[in-house]
Amino acid sequence: MSGDGGRAGGGRDRDAEGRARSARPRDGLGRPLPYGAEGVARQPEGVVRGPAETVREAQRLLDAGMPFHAHEVFEDAWKSGPEGERELWQGLAQLAVGLTHAARGNATGGARLLLRGAGRVAAYADGGGETYGVDVAGLVAWAGELAGRVAEPGGGPGAGPPEAAGEAPRLTGA
């Protein structure tokens, strides 16, 4: 990348393959910061992990208050995994992005994504597919509760966006 943050000639940032990709640093919730600001390291793209490693890494990021980064881990799983597991990984990614939006203060978008993700993972309840120890019922309940709370007029108890690390779900129920 060039010294202007990867913006050749002042245009869009590009990665090494020429795809549009912002070179701006990001905060823990994935929000862009000004060029030159200290940000949080991004998750590398296209990492192929086994299911257990995917769940472990995503949980570590969720616990650290970085649900946007956890979503990227789940995105890698849905892009590299078997077709039959795509809905599980996409649903988990949507749960992480829903928490991201809620923590950013986007209650409507956060609630919508939490419910959409819960609908996707719910299909894996009661033997609907391999879950790799993911607590599907617990995540569906967590998503419904958080979506209801953030969508509540006036913000509900403790008004204001939820704190990402404090609201992070336990993926395996353990």
Rank of each mutant, 00 (worst) to 15 (best):
D4P: 06
D4E: 15
D4C: 01
G6Q: 10
G10Q: 03
D13A: 11
S22L: 07
P25E: 11
R26P: 03
R31V: 11
L33V: 05
R49P: 01
V55M: 06
Q59H: 11
G65S: 10
H71A: 03
V73D: 04
D76R: 00
A77S: 11
W78R: 10
K79T: 08
W89G: 02
W89N: 02
Q90F: 06
G91N: 06
G91K: 06
L92Q: 07
Q94A: 03
L95P: 03
L99G: 01
H101M: 00
H101R: 09
A103W: 00
A111K: 08
G119S: 04
Y124I: 04
A125G: 10
D126S: 08
G128D: 01
E130H: 08
E130Q: 14
G133D: 07
D135I: 03
V136L: 03
V136N: 06
A137W: 03
A137M: 04
A137L: 06
G138R: 01
V140P: 00
W142N: 06
W142Q: 06
L146W: 12
A151M: 09
E152M: 13
G154V: 12
G156R: 04
G156Y: 14
G156A: 10
A159H: 14
G160L: 15
P161Y: 10
E163V: 15
G173N: 12
